[in-house]
């Protein structure tokens, strides 16, 4: 059942909401397609661990099309597409999942629409997750995590207590390998949305540990995990991660 099929602007995007809901003061977590897909893996972990429910799916020309069955439930016959929105009412949290890169020439228009839609829903603030090339990290002995925040960001005091540093950048914010994070941050700030970029320096490879660490840091910013002691033990990997490194070798090679 589709509530509110909304079309707008030149991209003719379609936002299909599965429930008619307001998101007053919810925090939105938005992943960027970046080095090692760390942000997307972190969002997968959040969605799976918090048993979040899908509330919207977005079709846009700005997104490279991807389709398959629900990656969080192997028995499901519901489709999953390039951009979806998940909600946890308990935590007042919205997590987007972006499963494909955004086409650069449509990026600004699409991301502006995302921010406009979220502001219409009255969200409180946004956390943009991304990653950057490990070789861009200038101070070797420091934490691999960096953040950038605007003045109205509600986490400005909490984030300073964590083991992460402010990202050093000139007036034109750049996060190398970080995808559309800086563009989304700029748009959010222009539209006066409280916003934080949180990223990790890493390399391509097995990026699951990076995602775990990222979620652990987020859980220090947001009250999303009950028991802070064994935080990582409470994370649940989605079943779709089972074959992240390929299928078993064929038996006839032995």
């Amino acid at each position: 059942m589709h509530y509110g099929l909304i079309k707008m602007n030149n991209l003719d995007n379609i936002w299909n909401y599965s429930e008619d809901t307001t998101l007053d003061n919810y925090t939105v977590i938005f992943p960027c397609v970046a080095v090692g897909n760390v942000a997307q893996l972190a969002c997968d972990l959040l969605i799976s661990s918090l048993k979040m429910t899908k509330i919207a799916s977005v079709y846009s020309k700005a997104l490279i099309p991807v389709v398959g069955y629900d990656p969080y439930d192997l028995n499901s016959s519901n489709l999953s597409c390039s951009c979806e929105m998940y909600k946890s009412d308990d935590k007042k949290l919205i997590v987007f999942q972006i499963r494909a890169p955004i086409v650069i020439k449509y990026a600004s228009e699409f991301l502006e629409e995302v921010i406009t839609k979220l502001k219409e829903k009255n969200i409180g603030d946004m956390i943009i997750l991304t990653s950057s090339f490990a070789y861009e990290k200038k101070h070797i002995s420091t934490s691999p995590f960096r953040y950038v925040s605007n003045e109205s960001c509600p986490y400005n005091s909490t984030v300073k207590t964590l083991d992460c540093l402010v990202h050093e950048s000139d007036s034109d914010l750049k996060i190398h390998g970080g995808g559309f994070a800086s563009l989304l941050y700029r748009i959010a700030s222009q539209k006066l949305l409280p916003c934080l970029i949180f990223f990790k320096y890493c390399s391509e490879g097995n990026n699951i540990p990076d995602a775990y660490e990222m979620v652990e840091y987020i859980s220090k910013l947001l009250p999303i995990i009950f028991d802070k002691k064994d935080c990582m033990l409470q994370f649940v990997q989605p079943p779709s991660w089972k074959l992240l490194f390929g299928k078993p070798p064929p038996s006839d090679i032995y």
Partner: peptide, 14 residues
């Protein structure tokens, strides 16, 4: 230093 080419970045955002 040769970093593996990212599987994620289809276009150069930098």
């Amino acid at each position: 230093i040769v970093e593996p080419y990212t599987r994620a970045c289809w276009e150069d955002w930098d």
